[in-house]
Nucleic acid binder design. Structure first.
Length: 448
RNA sequence: CGGGGCGUGGCGCAGCCUGGUAGCGCAUCUGCUUUGGGAGCAGAGGGUCGCAGGUUCGAAUCCUGCCGCCCCGACCA
């Protein structure tokens, strides 16, 4: 993409309403624009990031055996009356009426709807288990939206729902999502920590929040440092096999958000050097809730004994739009974003330091063509801006690699690669630079 | 929802108290000079001062109502 044709409205100054760094940078880097309290338009650069996050989430859901579908954003109040939540949900639910005065709502979640869909299609225990998901916009009329896309009212969420015949089956479904989440966040450059969470009326141990550590995180969290070093399950993980050992390993260490924190246990179970008391961002939440919806909504299956019983359910959420902010919180510096390659809006920023100069124009065009030919997503700054401005904006939008082409280098037959993550620079002949970028980016995109 | 604050050009702000031709910085446009870390000079364009009433000869400024947004608290992917 040529920058001269792109839509990238950058801000030099930080808008006063943005309190945390990810919000500030998303506004300044032209990724989002606020259209109302907690409601954002995704501008081209931000949209590319959102799509990449979504794709990784999708790939890992599919790998774990979940099946994608799509449910509507607008739901009928009638459905929510079946579960009793229409009255219970409160003002967070955005309620609307259609022209026939029928009560509708913009879905804050989809348990009722998926349960209705499931019960219409499944009768027997032989049809179980089922694991369905979709990635869809939600609306929760939060009392106080803030932190940009980290806590918006409208947000993109992946929500999955499992249906099993018994609790043992439900646990297997839960474990699939547990492992899928570890992989999902790791692929985005995030170290996620599953922390024991509130279980609601069901009790038990099947509820975890996936937290990433960040100084600007919303909640205080406490965990064992050794959790950060556990290996992430590989792409060769057999999701049809027994995943329990992986879960056991992860849950054997202390990890809790402040509402579940037990200071005594924390100090007793962990050596002082391994204690982490930090801030965290919740990017995923998985939990088992049994027959909470299947019972009132009569989502029943017939068992081998010929008796009908409500299915055992669980739900599994990932905050897709929130992740865009969370990744910035984890990867940035004073100058701007530092995108990990798999979620970067473009892989390479090609900087023509003297647009209009035949030599640099020619060299850039060749490099641009070579990179695009190899599938490297390149944002080519072909504008007439001054070098300082070009460097500053590349740093701000945070593409993983900058390929800098100027007359001074070309005189010596070299161009420069700057790696945004650590600022490392390297001068190479143009062809060699392109080859190196292709190799490095392919390596970074390889799914382990 | 309680408490606090703010709406003035694309962004950041001053002006309001004490009514009298709407300003500054950045950005934008034109020209010249510049060109390896957000340039210099000269010129130019752009604002129903959130909206609606009211007071007044006259309202960005005073009064009333409404709308929007932000911050602190309880809630949430």
């Amino acid at each position: 993409m040529r920058l001269s044709r792109y839509f990238l409205p950058l801000l030099k100054e930080t808008p006063s309403e943005a309190q945390i760094v990810s919000h500030q940078l998303m506004l300044r880097a032209g990724m989002i624009r606020q259209e109302g309290a907690g409601i954002y338009a995704w501008l081209p650069l931000g949209f590319r990031v959102l799509k990449k996050i979504e794709r990784i989430v999708r790939e890992e859901q599919d790998r774990a055996g979940a099946v994608e579908m799509l449910m509507p954003t607008i739901q009928q109040a009638e459905l929510w009356r079946e579960s009793g939540r229409y009255d219970a949900y409160g003002k967070e639910m955005l309620r609307i009426k259609d022209r026939g005065e029928r009560e509708m709502l913009y879905g804050p979640t989809n348990e009722e709807m998926i349960t209705e869909i499931f019960r219409a299609g499944i009768r027997s225990y032989k049809d179980l288990p089922k694991l369905l998901y979709h990635i869809q916009w939600k609306f929760r009329d939060e009392i106080r939206p803030r932190f940009g896309v980290m806590r918006g009212r409208e947000f993109l969420m992946k929500d999955a729902y499992s249906f099993d015949f018994d609790e043992a089956g439900a646990r297997r479904s839960y474990n699939r999502m547990f492992v899928a989440y570890l992989r999902t966040f790791a692929r985005m450059g995030l170290t996620s920590i599953p922390m024991r969470a509130e279980t609601g009326p069901i009790g038990g141990d099947l509820s975890h929040e996936f937290i990433i550590l960040a100084d600007t995180g919303e909640s205080a969290v406490y965990c064992d440092r050794r959790l950060l070093e556990l290996p992430v399950p590989g792409a060769d993980t057999d999701f049809e096999g027994d995943l329990q050992p992986i879960i056991d390993r992860y849950t054997s260490y202390y990890a809790a958000t402040d509402e579940k924190h037990d200071a005594a246990a924390f100090e007793k179970q962990i050596a002082e050097a391994d204690r982490i008391a930090a801030r965290g961002i919740e990017v995923g939440h998985i939990f088992y809730f049994g027959t909470k919806y299947s019972e009132p909504m009569r989502a029943h299956v017939t068992g081998p004994d010929g008796k009908e019983r409500p299915v055992e359910m669980g739900s599994y959420g990932v905050g897709v739009s929130r992740l865009a902010g969370a990744i910035i919180e984890a990867h940035h510096d004073e100058a701007g974003c530092k995108w990990p390659v798999p979620v970067a809006p473009f892989h390479v920023g090609l900087v023509n330091l003297k647009a209009g100069d035949a030599g640099t124009d020619d060299a850039c065009e060749r490099l641009y063509a070579a990179l695009e030919r190899e599938g490297v997503e390149t944002l080519y700054d072909d504008t007439g801006a001054r070098p300082g401005e070009k460097f500053a904006r590349m740093d701000l939008i945070g593409l993983p690699y900058q390929l800098i082409v100027g007359p001074r280098g070309l005189e010596n037959g070299v161009v420069e690669i700057k790696r945004r993550a650590d600022g490392a620079r390297e001068e190479l002949a143009p062809e060699a630079a392109a080859e190196k970028l292709v190799a490095d980016i392919r390596a970074a995109l390889a799914v382990a």
